[in-house]
Design a protein around this nucleic acid. Structure first.
Lengths: 110, 110
DNA sequence: GGTATCGTCAACCATCCGGTTGAATATGCC
DNA sequence: GGCATATTCAACCGGATGGTTGACGATACC
């Protein structure tokens, strides 16, 4: 039924994977570069990336011998929509949030 | 660190638990009543409720011999905030996001 | 062709998860 | 006291998870 939502929430339930997602927020990355800041093996990171891919949170595109990882925001958006379905919170203005991020990024620039 | 978020997302990653949460949206319920529509044992539901409680998504209040379960929306809100601002672990961004939310709320007010 | 780099596969391990069943602990009722 | 109801505990099971290591298949470079 809602196995997609299962996969998304399960994928988000791990700090390593959340950190990977936030790294990909900056830019697309190769698998080796994703693994670099972590203290675990490359194989472990590769598994985490597979879980994120299965959940639809990222996509992987192999060009040459390097595999590029790209954030896919839609799956995460689905999770947010489910939470909002509770009606407990004001609906989130995604466009406003995008503008917020943009402003922050500009503010941080030298 | 971020074990709280771990627990929230892990708790949300199960359809039974999500269904329980949506049931509790209606009203507080006793454990037995929560278990009634499910086809699994009462003990299994009791475990699910323990997981939801540990994640802070519900609270349980024993009055007499019946234990009442109540939805606690704050934990879910934390998850939403992370998703919306994912990658904003740095306090600076979190504060900025709080201000952003505040601004949005003021903007929306009549 | 030979070699280094990128990434996954396979096997293994410890631990957790979601479920069961049966016994145990409260509490309420007569 | 004695019995029924509400809920958890304890032990168990099969399967998933998160990690390791070592071998392997591709691709790039000289």
């Amino acid at each position: 039924m809602d196995t997609e939502l299962d996969a998304v929430f399960a994928a988000l339930a791990d700090p390593t994977r959340r950190r990977i997602l936030s790294m990909l927020l900056e830019d697309d990355m190769a698998v080796t570069d994703v693994a670099e800041p972590f203290e675990m093996s490359l194989a472990a990171i590769s598994k985490h990336l597979a879980i994120l891919t299965r959940a639809g949170l990222i996509s992987q595109d192999k060009r040459g011998r390097v595999k590029w990882c790209r954030l896919e925001p839609d799956a995460m958006r689905a999770a947010t929509v489910w939470i909002q379905g509770f009606g407990l919170f004001e609906p989130v203005d995604f466009d406003a949030f995008e503008r917020f991020l943009e402003r922050e990024r500009i503010g941080d620039a030298p």
